[in-house]
Design a binder for these strands. Structure first.
Length: 478
DNA sequence: CTAGGGTTAG
């Protein structure tokens, strides 16, 4: 069990590799140091075992080091942490908080954080000021405004409603669960604020598509004498990007330069995005090229910015540059940008190659947006049948958007046969979609099929194709 | 004795 190979790496004294009887063993403080240095659950379990044998585990500080690793580390195991926690007779506040935090940030068990909090209250333990930010993180990850409200009332009852960290967490959590009104209320009721709180509310509005309000609040913040921080500038740039406020964006850029802010990844990306969304593609590119460090979001913003503004070739060249980059790997939205560039440039073969390379080379499963790009690309290239086939091969049901792209390709290339099949599918999804009748009718007219035009007109008067034999939208299922 | 809030895209 106590393999020297693993433990021995960090061994500082000889006592650790030899298990001595408990009564002769003083609490070895180095065991908790080891717990801090461990990087796998395997190592952690060995230290745990050592602590049990040497009675070190009864020391709450030592036990909490184990708890922290297993609950919080990327290589940890929150279920193990929970079991470990249950063996502790008198957990202290740090331990309760650590496990709540561990559950809160776990992908699968944020709800357990709430349950643990309830359990803690039931046995009469009063939460500390650190408890609430963790608990609220769980609410945030659950996207639950209801839970947030409940926690909010506990915050008030326990009296932490003046703690910046706690209140900021409340605002952030409300913003993340469609509770912008509550967030604003909490914000307005604060007797005093700091830059972080201002940033949270500005960001909250920006992320909820309320760019104007975000800009207004940012201006108010500055007006009240707060020095904008890097994060607050990133947030307001996002608002400038959404709302087309190039002037404001440039003003912010000048401010960043004047104040000598480090344009590290996030702030730099926010600038690139702001310029790209505003169509100032050269300025975007200039910022991009001058960034010393970029992440995948930076690349995506630049690539799709180029694609959208008619620089398909450059977008693809940039993607090829990204492929040579060792520390940044493309993700699924990278491919949305690249495929839309192919679409724009009509690069059919290259687009097919890229689409296939997603899974084969990059291990990324294409999503419906990628199929959408491909249908568009194939359709515009006149490969209407291939596009239809691709839709039929998708693992999901086609939506109106993707069918619409195919239908318009049918229109451009006069493929009535496919158009009729597509229209049927679209009417299943949306029986009163009049647009599709019009498209189809125009196609019949273009082909001189006047009988079909009038037949369709009758059907439209009826209100639905469903009633017409041979046109029963739900009737012949594919 | 340990710890908490703010930032970039779709």
């Amino acid at each position: 069990m106590f393999r020297r190979t693993v433990i021995g790496k960090h061994r500082t004294t000889s006592s650790i590799s030899t298990v001595r009887p408990v009564h002769t063993q003083p609490h070895p403080p180095h065991l908790s140091l080891l717990a801090d240095k461990c990087n796998s659950m395997h190592q952690l379990q060995q230290i745990h075992a050592q602590m049990l044998v040497t009675a070190t585990f009864h020391d709450n500080f030592a036990a909490s080091r184990l708890l922290s690793f297993s609950a919080l580390s990327i290589n940890g195991d929150v279920i193990y942490a929970s079991k470990l926690f249950n063996t502790i007779q008198q957990p202290n506040m740090f331990m309760w908080n650590t496990l709540i935090r561990g559950f809160a940030i776990s992908p699968n068990y944020p709800h357990e954080a709430m349950l643990l909090y309830v359990k803690m209250r039931r046995i009469g333990v009063t939460p500390g000021k650190h408890t609430f930010p963790f608990l609220l993180k769980a609410c945030f990850n659950l996207r639950s405004a209801g839970s947030c409200k409940q926690v909010h009332s506990h915050v008030v009852k326990v009296g932490f409603d003046l703690d910046f960290h706690v209140v900021n967490s409340l605002i952030r959590t409300y913003c993340g669960s469609s509770g912008l009104v509550f967030a604003r209320q909490v914000f307005d009721e604060m007797p005093d604020r700091n830059v972080n709180v201002w940033t949270t509310i500005v960001c909250g509005y920006a992320q909820n598509d309320c760019a104007q309000e975000a800009l207004a609040l940012f201006n108010r913040m500055v007006g009240e004498g707060f020095e904008p921080s890097g994060p607050s500038l990133s947030s307001v740039l996002s608002a400038c990007a959404q709302s087309g406020c190039l002037d404001m964006g440039e003003k912010i850029h000048r401010y960043i330069v004047e104040k000598g802010f480090e344009t590290e990844v996030i702030l730099g990306t926010a600038l690139v995005n702001m310029y790209a969304k505003n169509g100032a593609i050269l300025l975007a590119r200039h910022c991009f090229d001058n960034m010393p460090e970029k992440n995948i979001i930076t690349w995506n913003v630049m690539i799709s910015g180029l694609a959208v503004h008619g620089h398909a070739k450059e977008a693809i060249e940039l993607f090829q540059e990204l492929e040579k980059c060792h520390h940044v790997k493309p993700n699924d939205s990278t491919f949305v940008g690249v495929l839309s560039a192919c679409c724009h440039a009509g690069m059919l073969d290259f687009g097919r190659k890229i689409f296939n390379s997603m899974r084969d080379v990059n291990g990324i499963e294409p999503k419906i947006q990628h199929y959408g790009c491909m249908v568009d690309l194939l359709g515009r290239g006149g490969m209407v049948l291939e596009a239809e086939e691709l839709i039929n091969r998708m693992p999901w049901q086609a939506d109106l958007k993707i069918l619409g792209a195919l239908l318009s390709a049918c229109g451009s290339y006069g493929n009535i046969e496919v158009a009729e099949r597509v229209v049927k599918k679209m009417l299943v999804l949306e029986p009163d979609n009049h647009g599709v009748y019009v498209v189809l009718s125009n196609m019949y007219a273009d082909a001189g099929r006047w009988d079909d035009v009038s037949r369709l007109r009758e059907v439209m008067k009826d209100g639905s194709l469903k009633k017409t034999p041979g046109w029963s939208a739900g009737g012949d299922k594919d």
